[in-house]
Nucleic acid binder design. Structure first.
Length: 890
RNA sequence: GGGUGCUUAGCUCAGUUGGUUCAGAGCAGCUGCCUUACAAGCAGCGGGUCAGCGGUUCGAAUCCGUUAGCGCCCACCA
């Protein structure tokens, strides 16, 4: 059964999200206000909400809502990425399961149609899920990297880059994914240590005795060997250089060459050279003018070029396994060593990546690099935290050309055309243009053949790397290519980008490059890097490990506000988050606390008319003043933390202010006693505080704050928490805050004394404070005495001029207090306690004395510091005197 | 191999310019409470040689050096 004292988020969240959306709060159009824009890191269109998304999007939502409350015109553009390789795989799977079709059965055009169908039906679930989280996205601007307009932009940019000479087609060693049958960029290859073997294989001399033993991890590639290389300085092999050796099993003659690349120390010091299947060997081969023999087909199986028939058609790993037997039979396998090495795997398919020589399209990165490096190093684009600049820098320095062609269908097809008369892969002329018609014009001009028709041209089959479209995201979502004077002008550069540091190279760096290359301007001013969400064992949360909690279940269990708070409370910029449901539990409990304070406490109070209750109002005035000042102070801290993107700190500021100061102290201070009404003045002030606090908390916990905002008071249509003005920080009265802190200290110490003496929390007590100038001054504060009496449940609080019998004493500040106990006091225990305290004070004073007697300290430290030390010492001495007095009187 | 970061309470981490407020927070733990909004709660408490060593300074968790352990990024060692 539903407990009426508990906040139930489900319906509340649905209700208010719909209300915001219907009120048009999410949509933005340019106007005279300052713009605050964020573009979402577009999740894969195939994606579903996971922990990383929740963290990332909560942060964006907080920034957007805060900026809105600050009066800015906020625009958060949502959308999805077509994710060519991942989506194509899904579509292929779906076609097989649902339509009984294989990709090879249908044409490219048919496939694209199906792909769009799939996208309409299953794509973008994540955008609906973001609504559950509370994301204040401008849904009218939802973008997709394969939308018509976006697609055209990608094509435009490709043509531009080509015309600027920053794009070329060339034969290079690339990373090949034999499963997805496409090339991958370096960033799409993940390296990890894996166990393998180092095979020592003897290559016999073609003429004469003996041979040379090489070490390799890939014995199946020996049929592509074109040489054996040794270091020219290696005395062991000097005599062999220039001789011929035989590849085992096929007895093909290859030369022994000398190259400095070979490490004398490693393995046997002799290296087989296989230019087709290893990037280093390729370079060695180039240096020595060696032939290239490609023995592995696109699908990873050994092909006909492999002159050893038994292995042709086998996958390279199967072939490797069988090689062992063949080599043993041929008596050339000298030994097998266990060996750990880094293996590259495809980020998407997990397949072991093959280095492969291939004809692909590349962007010349050297030409795009400079402005982007400068922008980050000079902090025109600021990174939070700063330290990621180093990572960015070193990556940019080592930048190699970016392979942007992919052998897939789902994506923007490269706008390049060739003459059909030239065979594929051997083209001498290429015509790059936005359309086939324009390409034809170019072809006519360049070839001088005016009779060419569209039928004479053949379009490039490859599509573009997904990142070659998403790098335009901040420009294209605002239509910056087709209408640069419209929304683009107003919203660009965007205010801040919020993303995980794992895609700093894939995406962040490239967006910066695109911004400068195509618009001459940065795409965003600030980048907030979120950490990775990890489990308790520090493992990155991932589907394959199954260690990620279900995001939707979490939202249902703890409420969106609870989850948001939980994720935020312990997640500084750049720092990883060790996720624990406990965090969300905290958030949920916080919601419940707010709920109860509003509905159970404040709204349940009877309110008296002002005239009837002047007396109560006067007593409460100190608490009200304190809350005002304290709130201003906290708003100052919040402001600073927001400016520095210290959102976890801001969340904690609010949490402890609301829970401790507002609920545990303030509400208790002004709470009317049982059956009594509260005065109207204090009540109104309390409602005002509570409302403003809801606004201050709104960016973090939008749903419950909106709900409570409306419960606290009758609100007119459109008077919603989401569109208020954020409460203003301001100067606060430090003395008043200190005075109330003194009162709180007294209260806490009396409570402590109760606990230690097994007194009931509400048993009325008599307390005396020793009469002194300082105690007179403190209690001259109007309302202070009443505050202490109420909060500590005192019967009376009076001044006293001497020791009070039958009492226990404590010191707060520089005043001494006596709590009268109606019980026998254990003198020995009390003496021991006091002596312990005296000892502590003595040490405290001695420490300060040492400092102050050091001339260099007095001379060198700022006057304020020295003064403070003097005051500390005087207070310490005063406390010692009071304790000594108590000891004497015992 | 090159870079870069971290080590603070049992756990996860703050600690910004070296200086009262600096040794903190949350969680966990302990004690006492179903108290009048809230047991998803209330009141209170105990935990740390700030990784080790050395230095700079009147003063170091904070700056410098060094050792140890851990992490991350980049790189082609078969």
């Amino acid at each position: 059964m539903e407990n009426p004292n508990r906040y139930s988020p489900a319906e509340t969240e649905k209700k208010w999200y719909a209300h915001w959306e219907n009120s048009g709060y999410f949509h933005s159009e340019p106007d005279e206000r300052e713009a605050f824009s964020i573009v979402i890191p577009p999740p894969n269109v195939t994606g579903v909400l996971h922990m990383g998304h929740m963290l990332n999007n909560t942060i964006q939502d907080i920034l957007i809502r805060k900026a809105k409350l600050d009066g800015k015109n906020t625009c958060w553009v949502p959308g999805t990425d077509h994710a060519s390789i991942a989506t194509e795989a899904k579509v292929v799977q779906w076609l097989r399961a649902e339509k009984k079709l294989r990709k090879s059965d249908i044409s490219r055009e048919e496939f694209m149609e199906y792909a769009y169908q799939w996208k309409e039906k299953y794509g973008g679930i994540i955008l609906k899920q973001l609504r559950m989280l509370g994301a204040a996205c401008d849904w009218e601007r939802t973008a997709f990297t394969m939308d018509k307009g976006y697609h055209d932009d990608v094509i435009t940019v490709f043509v531009q880059l080509f015309e600027r000479g920053k794009l070329y087609r060339g034969q290079r060693m690339v990373n090949w994914d034999p499963e997805a049958l496409t090339v991958l960029s370096n960033e799409e290859v993940l390296h990890s240590e894996e166990k393998s073997f180092l095979y020592h294989i003897n290559y016999r001399l073609a003429d004469g005795e003996g041979g040379i033993v090489i070490a390799t991890q890939r014995p199946e590639t020996i049929f592509a060997d074109v040489a054996v290389a040794v270091n020219p300085k290696d005395p062991r092999y000097k005599k062999l250089v220039g001789k011929k050796v035989l590849i085992p099993l096929i007895n093909k003659e290859i030369p022994v060459i000398a190259d400095n690349y070979v490490d004398i120390e490693f393995g046997t010091g002799a290296l087989k050279i296989t230019p087709a299947h290893d990037p280093n060997d390729y370079e060695v081969g180039q240096r020595h003018g060696l032939e290239i023999i490609d023995t592995i087909a696109d699908d990873g199986k050994l092909n006909e070029n492999c002159a050893f028939q038994p292995l042709v058609g086998l996958d390279r790993f199967e072939a490797r396994k069988q090689m062992k037997g063949f080599l043993e039979a041929a008596e050339v396998l000298v030994k097998m060593e266990e060996y750990t090495t880094k293996i590259g795997r495809s980020e998407r398919t997990g397949a072991v990546v093959e280095p492969k020589l291939s004809l692909q399209w590349f962007v010349k990165m050297a030409e795009l690099r400079e402005p982007s490096v400068r922008a980050v190093m000079k902090k025109e684009v600021r990174f939070y935290p700063d330290s990621f600049r180093n990572m960015y820098r070193s990556w940019m320095d080592g930048l190699r050309d970016w392979c942007i062609s992919r052998q897939l269908w789902w994506g923007q097809r490269i706008p390049a055309w060739y003459l059909k008369t030239e065979s594929a892969g051997k083209e001498t002329q290429v015509f790059v243009a936005k359309s086939a018609e324009e390409a034809l014009e170019k072809a006519k001009n360049l070839t001088g053949n005016k009779n060419l028709t569209l039928d004479d041209l053949r379009q490039e089959e490859d599509v573009l790397d997904t990142w070659a479209s998403s790098w335009l995201w901040p420009i294209s979502v605002f239509n910056g290519f087709q209408d640069p004077e419209g929304a683009f002008k107003y919203y660009y550069p965007t205010s801040v980008l919020v993303t995980g540091w794992d895609i700093i190279f894939f995406w962040v760096a490239r967006m910066i490059m695109a911004g400068y290359e195509f618009k001459g301007e940065k795409p965003f001013s600030k980048v907030y890097f979120t950490g990775m969400v990890r489990d308790k064992l520090r493992r990155k949360m991932s589907k394959s490990l199954g260690n990620s909690p279900d995001a939707i279940e979490l939202l249902e269990k703890f409420g969106a506000d609870g989850v948001r708070y939980g994720l935020l409370s312990s997640s500084p910029a750049g720092g990883d988050l060790m996720f624990d449901e406990k965090l969300c539990e905290n958030g949920r409990n916080f919601c419940n606390k707010i709920w109860n304070a509003a509905n159970g406490a404040v709204l349940g109070w009877q309110v008296a008319k002002t005239a009837e209750n002047e007396e109560v109002a006067r007593k409460n005035a100190l608490a009200v003043k304190w809350m005002q000042q304290r709130f201003k102070q906290v708003l100052g801290e919040l402001d600073k933390n927001f400016k520095d993107f210290r959102l976890s700190d801001a969340a904690q500021n609010l949490y402890s202010f609301i829970w401790d100061d507002f609920f545990s102290w303030y509400i208790e201070m002004v709470k009317p006693s049982f059956g009594q009404p509260i005065d109207k003045k204090t009540y109104d002030a309390t409602i005002r505080f509570f409302s403003e606090i809801m606004v201050a908390l709104h960016p973090f916990m939008p749903f419950i704050t909106e709900d409570v905002w409306h419960k606290l008071s009758e609100r007119k249509t459109g008077d919603d928490c989401m569109v208020q003005q954020y409460p203003k920080k301001g100067k606060f009265d430090k003395n008043l805050l200190a005075t109330v802190e003194s009162a709180k200290d007294i209260i806490v110490k009396i409570r402590e004394l109760r606990n230690q003496n097994q007194l009931k929390p509400k048993e009325p007590l008599q307390v005396f404070v020793s009469n002194s100038a300082s105690s007179q001054a403190l209690f001259a504060t109007p309302g202070l005495k009443e505050m202490v009496e109420k909060m500590a449940f005192l019967e009376s609080l009076e001044f006293a001029d001497g020791e009070i019998p039958n009492s226990k004493s404590f010191v707060s500040g520089t005043e001494k207090y006596f709590v009268v106990l109606n019980q026998v006091i254990d003198v020995a225990a009390e003496r021991e306690k006091l002596e312990k305290e005296l000892e502590y004070q003595r040490g405290f004073v001695a420490g300060i004395e040492r400092k102050l007697s050091n001339e260099k300290f007095v001379a060198g430290a700022p006057a304020a510091v020295v003064e403070a030390e003097r005051k500390k010492m005087a207070d310490g001495l005063a406390r010692m005197a009071m304790i000594e007095e108590s000891l004497r009187s015992l």
